[in-house]
Design a protein around this nucleic acid. Sequence first.
DNA 1: CTCCCATAG
DNA 2: TTTTGCTATGGGAGG
Length: 882
Amino acid sequence: MEAQKKVVLIDGHSILNRAFYGVPELTNSAGLHTNAVYGFLNILLKLLEEERADYLAVAFDLPAPTFRHERYAAYKGTRKPMPEELREQVPLLKELLGAMHIQTVSLEGFEADDVIGTLAKRCQKEGYEVTVVSGDRDLLQLADRHILIRLPKTSRGKTEILDFTPEAVRETYGVTPEEFIDVKALMGDTSDNIPGVPSIGEKTATALIQSFHSIENLKEHLDEVKPPRAKKALEEHFEDAVFSKWLATICLDAPLALDLSSLKLGEIYTAAAYEQIQRLEFRSLLKHFGSEVQRENMRAQQKPKLRLLQSAAELREVLRQAAEAPEIGIARDDLLISLCFRAEEAVLFYRREPEEAEREKMKALAGTGEGTVLTGTAEQDFLKALFQQAKRVSALSLKELIKAVGTAERENVDDLGVLAYLVNPLKESYQSEDLARDYLSLLLPSAKEDAVAAAAYAGYVVFAARQPLCDKVKELGMEMLYETVERPLIFMLAEMEETGVRVDAEKLKAFSEELETEIHRIETEIFEETGENFNLNSPKQLGEILFEKMKLPYGKKTKSGYSTAADILEKLAPEYPVVKKILRYRMLTKLNSTYAIGLAGFIRADGRIHGTFHQTITATGRISSANPNLQNIPIRTEMGSRVRAVFVPSPGKVFVDADYSQIELRILAALSGDENLIAAYRDAVDVHAVTASQVFHVPLSEVTPLQRRNAKAVNFGVVYGISAFGLSEDLSISRNEAKEYINRYFATYPEVKHFLDRQIKEAKEYGFTRTLFGRIRPVPELKSSNFMQRSFGERVAMNAPIQGTAADIMKIAMVKVRRALAAEKLDARIVLQIHDELLVEAAEAEAPRVLELLKETMRHAAELRVLLEVDAHIGASWLEAH
DNA sequence: CTCCCATAG
DNA sequence: TTTTGCTATGGGAGG
């Protein structure tokens, strides 16, 4: 017997809706909202995988006044308009479906579920196996023999699908699919604008239909209806039930002129679809499509041959050729080095003996041959020679190569990750497959999918993408920023990482033990006072104990319970001593786990911590630090600052610490050109006090501490993109008072207001903000019609030029400091950068000169209308020097 | 893997 | 009318 043909019918609008609300905000770099299309496509692909459908259709509503629901909604005035972010995605989806050769069906005056009901019944009659997919439980009434209803659920990022056969409907709702309509008619459904009968809910409705099976029969036997309340409601509102049933009933015989054969599935993973996915920037889904499209696309893009080197002689020849080429590309991971100096081929050699699986994969990629392995100093020598002889080198993670090879600062190198970061700092990663996709229109396997292939092609990508990337950077006006700041900085960071910072392991151990004793003591006290032993680290358990068992007044609630955040607990602390102890417990455990124990694990054999400083992570241009994060070492509490005491210089050396004083506010003054604010900084000892004096119109000597505190909060607020609400929270004042402060501030410094407004306006116009040195930051949120998103975008637009300019200046300073130290042959190295602070380890005898040099270099890293001020100190630990 | 909470500038 | 200041990294709990 021939296998039964399978038809899949998808309720387009309901799935799109489900996806829209289930998938978090998502936009492509053009600012187009894409989350609903993304969610829809995920569900669709999952279905295609599971169903092996022969026919497939996606049904959409067609706006017409005869809509059952529309008419009722218009009458009631309740139908919510489709949000703009969703509306703009409907054509995107339809276009994509078209490209995938998937038929969309709609019929004027009918809703999608009518079309689906009609088609489902028709297919059932013709002996097909039908699957209906919807986000709307109303469709359950269609469940039948050979009609399966599937309801996808998007929870926690994963889509699960609930299947409903008629039996499953009965099990879940206690009624048959046909009776399901009648239950709905009685209980109503607010989300679907079905009114139902007042005071009849799910329980009563189900019970009634279980006894009477339909509302028509119910009417016949009204006098038998049990709960008097329900009986009364039905007597008075039976019309509602009839009307609701009409609304809820799906039409099964819509006049749909459609040949089933037109729904036949053809080629889904087409090149056109691939292009659309690319435009929508669905990276993960691209791979889904890639499997089909990949080979074809790669051929079109002339992916290079891969040549696995077999001998030292071959290697020498490659070196000779590389030296002659105008430029070379190089990429290195733990297994492979991939080199490229002409677009036709990438040459490879192993950095370690490959595992069997890796060897097999390589065979498939590059053909036969065992391949040669170059490890340790042999590899290093090769790379050294390569760097020495090549005319120009492009690389990914150039910093790692610099560290491996020991290259001095030079100009004929490029880091493609850094270039791509300048073009768009919001990207999640700048791996070779990302660059291939974005700059070569070439889809390559990711490191995650196929590590060997990704590493093998990486050299080619680096070689081929350099020109397009450099062009793009130039076009965006960041050539200078790259050449004078970012590229030299790579060498600076390499040196900083290699130098590391010394940490006294014994002192750290002693500190940890002290913390543990104190933690244990305070824990016991808390358990005594709460009368319960529980996991203090669990916000969930803590919330229950505090706010349920002990009935403390709670402030905020989070998704999973009561908020126990510090700002909430601090409000309770004065009145409840146990809360104070909990806060102290939190502080101590944080210090112990993250810093005392955490840092100890990073100390290497040389007694130093060599963290990683990332250059392509932050949206604004700042550097970030990881493994460990050395940019958030405690300082604000006394106990916490003791962590800084374990950061110490080597014997014979001292620390010189230098930090910019209020650099962001000074930048705000300089960029806005506000004469009043500039004057405030010109010779101010205490800027916040001067601000207070100007804002509140009082002599400087009469500024009260409260006025100063308020002025300081407004100063910071302005830098972050202030809102009256935020400031009122910060200062515990009313929103109107906060508004008043802000107004006074802007009245005092009108050019600041103009400057901030201009940042938003220009960001809206160009799609990005720009720092003084040309660094851009896209702000796609400004296009959102969601108030919260858009407000966020506005704050970002105000903050990014300021924070970003500060980051630029610090980077310039770092590059200059390094060169100046070298020029004077000083025995001193930068060991840490903490955004506006540099920590330098210097020979004790040279420390005064180093301090002078640091101060001068940092102060003159940029010449602004406001002088940059730098505080610097010498000390025997970081704590002392700061 | 996500949430909550902590740390820093 | 809506929301409720920016930028990061990391530990621990819990699903």
